[in-house]
Design a protein around this nucleic acid. Structure first.
Lengths: 105, 105
DNA sequence: ACATAACAGCCTTAAAAAGGTATACAAAAG
DNA sequence: CTTTTGTATACCTTTTTAAGGCTGTTATGT
């Protein structure tokens, strides 16, 4: 699935949520204080993250958005190694380039 | 929780996902073909929806994004009334302004 | 402790989104 | 069928983001 397709799918779902509430694009625009054009754009898969958040709030779908990115838990191994200190930056030069993937757990 | 706070939270989670994989912002930028500045912006809660999608793909977190907006099911009542035809537009003038909320199910 | 690389912040230019307005079409209401 | 009105499309102006580069700070590996 391409990026564009995913954007379109998100737009379609926003529209479905709106229609489910029988909201007008104009009503959503007024309620969220963004312009009508932005609503149209979002339903077409374009737009800013901030606009998306505003619209999802009005559609009461924000809980889903907050859960869409899981909070990564600290690897027990790492936790043991560094005594609870979380990484603030990616590892430098000599750190393996193989990105360690999902291993190391 | 304000819109800004939610944006910041999303940015923080993206960063956490990236660090969990030990990716560099630069590495992410190269892999997604967006600029380093965009990565910084996203981790700060700003940016376009398309950028977010590209980054989440690289972080293999797209499945979450596709599920974040539920596919609204058709109200059985509506389905009965209109013989399966889904609404394509919101209801007009004399349709109650009270937006029918989540009732009518 | 030192050197290095990751990252934040700021700048400039180009591109895209947002805000606004006007027209055109079609779904829905009467 | 007729009218109403929600939505799409197009255009213009303003604002924000993207791209690329440069500097200062600091976590991190050695």
């Amino acid at each position: 699935m391409t990026d564009k397709a995913i954007g379109a799918e998100i737009g379609a779902r926003i529209k479905a949520l709106r229609l489910r509430r029988n909201y007008t694009q104009q009503h959503l625009a007024d309620a969220t204080a963004v312009s009508l054009n932005v609503i149209k754009g979002l339903e077409a898969g374009r737009g800013k993250l901030s606009s998306l958040i505003a619209v999802l709030r009005e559609l009461e779908a924000l809980d889903g958005l907050e859960q869409f990115i899981p909070i990564p838990e600290i690897s027990p191994l790492q936790l043991a190694r560094q005594q609870g200190k979380r990484r603030q930056r990616a590892s430098g030069s000599r750190g393996k380039k193989e990105t360690m993937e999902t291993s190391e757990w």
